[in-house]
């Protein structure tokens, strides 16, 4: 069973949509840990991203101060940074772009690392910039597990590659193996 993690957080940018869908479809029903997703998206265009990503799971864009609940899959809303507070509620932040991005993966990963520490699983997928790399390192420093999609299989390698270069302890895995971790087999 999946008792190792209290939270799973996933970041992705260019080229991550299909693999993310694959991961979401593989989430076992018994998984209790909340899943927090950050994708780089257009800022002022209405989108139905939540529905696009998965037909199996309902994906929620959290509102400010909403508690982080088990069994739920969350997606950072457009044009806000998404953070988690010490009392495990969401906080939205409308400050400057970070790594040219809002939402920024670093912002979410780093706040999750601070709150969930060693009980965090962070996953960084395909993308064309380095957002998420520093955050993934913070997850690892906090004792959590940091995984990247193998750059060789990623449509855009810059994002996972930056994380590998930025700190030790990053696990480089195929999507199949990332699924296995989520399912709790490895």
């Amino acid at each position: 069973m999946n008792n190792k993690f209290d939270v799973i957080t996933i970041g992705g940018s260019a080229g991550s949509l299909l693999v993310l869908t694959e991961l979401l479809d593989a989430l076992p029903d018994r998984l209790t840990a909340p899943v927090i997703i950050v994708l780089h998206r257009l800022r002022n265009v209405q989108s139905e991203m939540g529905r696009l990503l998965s037909t199996r799971r309902r994906i929620v864009e959290p509102e400010d101060k909403e508690p982080v609940r088990e069994h739920c899959v969350y997606l950072a809303p457009q044009n806000y940074h998404l953070m988690v507070e010490a009392d495990r509620t969401f906080m939205l932040d409308y400050s400057e772009l970070v790594n040219y991005s809002r939402p920024s993966i670093d912002m979410t990963f780093s706040s999750v690392a601070e709150v969930y520490g060693a009980r965090t699983l962070g996953i960084l997928l395909s993308g064309a910039n380095k957002d998420g790399a520093a955050g993934l390192c913070q997850i690892i420093t906090a004792g959590g597990r940091g995984v990247v999609q193998d750059p060789q299989t990623a449509a855009f390698e810059a994002m996972p590659q930056s994380a590998i270069e930025m700190c030790g302890g990053v696990q480089v895995l195929s999507i199949e193996n990332i699924k296995k971790i989520i399912v709790g087999e490895t």
Binding site: M83, A86, D93, S95, E114
Partner: peptide, 9 residues
Amino acid sequence: YAQASIKRR
């Protein structure tokens, strides 16, 4: 103030 954000700033 919400701490996650202000600490970061």
